[in-house]
Design a protein around this nucleic acid. Structure first.
Lengths: 154, 154
DNA sequence: GATGAAATCCGAGTCAC
DNA sequence: GTGACTCGGATTTCATC
């Protein structure tokens, strides 16, 4: 409950973040505790929500999602209701990887993966500008993914 | 090599993307094939690079990385050399989760996780504006993470 | 209250078909 | 592609500190 992480917990988190398929036996060796202890601690990290999930990372290019686009969105009105409607609608669009409400010249930034530019143009014309309350979108095609979804440092 | 995925491969990928800790036995049940077949296919998906990695997702708020910031960067010059230097430097900054070269009013977009705004201001003043060739940065503090790093749909 | 050793159980990985 | 078999790791128990 007290949710304090000691050096061993942190090592477990960091290792599992790099390789979620590590066996408990391997992990125990890496962090230098017995398998039983390692298992108990890892369990706790899941139970208490430090690890929210373990996910396989699929290569986007190999499943026809090789194109990445960032879209800045401005809404017509800045009312809570307007935000709520937009967010509700955006959650249904599964090609949206990120959607963040920001402070500044835009209301939202979206990160979108599609097959290619033609796909994006279609989506833009049919889905994005149809989102509730959208005044304007600005599209930034990603020409090079220098770093994408790097593991969290802590 | 021909890298064709049938219905079963796709199901494996989708399930492992949602839960990378599924045992082979569980996965086999979910996709409705024998454990041996499932194992062989999953192996192939790793070997041929469809799954690049399996990672534990750590809750950012619980490891003092609860603040998210998007930064637009404009460089002084748009030469290949200038881009190369910037990218080389940015790869060393471990708090940068995303760095994408884009077409439009900015050269790069960065996605950065830190503990709080104070942390960001320090990093901005000491690390970001010190990056090679940076003319201007525009900071967008994220006020609400509506969708963050959603699993890829394919 | 946490640890590590041991004991059991179950899945991973391999083989023959 | 399936079923069976073996080996090793996951998980639990328990004594110990």
């Amino acid at each position: 409950m007290t949710a304090v992480l000691d050096r061993i917990d942190l090592k477990i988190l960091r290792h599992l973040q790099k390789d979620g398929r590590l066996t408990n036996a391997e992990l125990a060796q890496l962090v230098d505790v017995s398998p039983a202890t390692c298992h108990r601690r890892t369990q706790r990290l899941f139970d208490e929500g430090f690890i929210t999930n373990v996910r396989a990372i699929v290569a986007p290019q190999l499943v026809n999602r090789g194109a990445l686009v960032i879209v800045g969105v401005v809404l017509d009105r800045s009312t809570p209701e307007s935000f709520r409607e937009f967010e509700e609608a955006i959650r249904k669009l599964k090609f949206v990887l990120d959607c963040h409400l920001v402070a500044g010249d835009f209301d939202y930034f979206l990160k979108i993966r599609v097959g290619d530019m033609a796909d994006f143009n279609h989506i833009h014309g049919t889905k994005l500008i149809a989102l509730p309350g959208v005044r304007q979108t600005r599209t930034f095609f990603v020409m090079k993914e220098v770093v994408d979804n790097a593991p969290l440092e802590f």
